[in-house]
Design a protein around this nucleic acid. Sequence first.
RNA 1: GGAGAAUUGGCAGAGUGGUCGAAUGCACUGGUCUUGAAAACCAGCGUACCGCAAGGUACCGGGGGUUCGAAUCCCUCAUUCUCCGCCA
Length: 422
Amino acid sequence: MLEIQRIRSEKELIIEGLKKRHFDATSIIDELLSTDEKWRIYKTEMENVASQMNQFSKEIGILFKEGKQAEANVLKAQTAELKTKEADLKERVDAFDEQITNLMYQLPNVPNELVKAGKSEEDNETVEEHGSAPEFGFKPMPHWEIADKFRLIDFELGVKITGAGFPIYRGKGAKLQRALISFFLDEASEAGYEEHLPPHVVNEASGFGTGQLPDKEGQMYYIQEDDLYLIPTAEVPLTNMYRNVLLPNEDFSIKITGYTPCFRREAGSYGKDVRGLNRLHQFDKVEIVRVEHPSNSEKALNEMLDHVKGLLEKLGLQYRILRLCGGDTGFAAAMTYDFEVYSAAQEKWLEVSSVSRFDTFQSTRLKLRFKNADKKSQLCHTLNGSALALPRIVAALLENHQTEDGVNIPEVLHKYTGFKTI
RNA sequence: GGAGAAUUGGCAGAGUGGUCGAAUGCACUGGUCUUGAAAACCAGCGUACCGCAAGGUACCGGGGGUUCGAAUCCCUCAUUCUCCGCCA
């Protein structure tokens, strides 16, 4: 959510910025500002009435104490009138309030100055590319065939017990999964991120805090009986730990990590894009999250990018980094870098990480602030990134490191897997 | 799941219908004193919104209600604790 103060003072800049998303904010902002103006007028009026009522109440109390019943009753009668007036004003103020909130929820974050205008993924810029595609002396298999051949992942069995998009990993497939999680968590710990194991379901307030609600409601699994949501990413519980938090000073840099399964309904997805591990309803991911002083968030973002690069290099995967264009940048993000690994057998790029800075967009909703040098509370910046999401990493590892009779496991994983080849 | 008790400022803890945004203590900040420190003393010390300001409004777990007036009474939800039941 953007800050209303910012919309009041930087209207034009915001409208200009949002154009990079091909989002025309003019009418929303105009309506917002005029509603905000009315809200303030009525609110001031309401508070004046409330103030007078409070005054009368005090006087009535004093009169009663002095035994002046008659005079007190006169004042009581007068208050009744004010009360109706106040109730009426409150109703209007509340209505404006709700209208403002609804409008605010419609405004996405303003893209960072580095972000180029663009409509879709075709306009994303490739900023870096590392490694090269492996050479095979044979026709490489797609990962679902490898998984089948070596009994690593059973997609059909998952369908039987749950449904499509819920594969069962087994044998070396399951162990590889566990190895990757441990490897990613250890790497994150080494980089200074404190490990957490958060709940995998969250309440509604948390969904709003990080911005999944209200705009992505249909993407989350919802448990009606308890009014809880299955998390689509560890970002939700991890970042919401800092909901309604006021950090005592400006000397902070919070780095946290956690592994969770992620649940996504992915309604409407079908076809070859969802083949194998390419898109699942449940998958594993290690997330890194940071809460930073505004002046440090650029540095933090770069550190996160370096961290993810390191992981991919240690796994020996060819990858590229894209800076998403305005139109492809998520609703809440100011800037997002996607990491994609090359899938040798599918001959396409697979997204394995998304690293974003949100500036104050999440902290506004979260009410996540710190005391600055002037003892004023100021909004923190939040960032997060996948480090990493497993399924497509597994797909790329199987495909890119396959040999004629098996798969080579990258050396960094040996101590976790206990085997070097599949 | 059943029964009971509780929820007040950073912490502890008063307050059961009126001038209470809330006593007191601790913690914290500034000052006096001191060679320095401690102690003592003085002062300050929650958050948010509106306003140039003066000031105003709201907040005593959340929401709703009664009343001229609610931290205080009522309803409801949540959480915590105790006991019982169930259980990995």
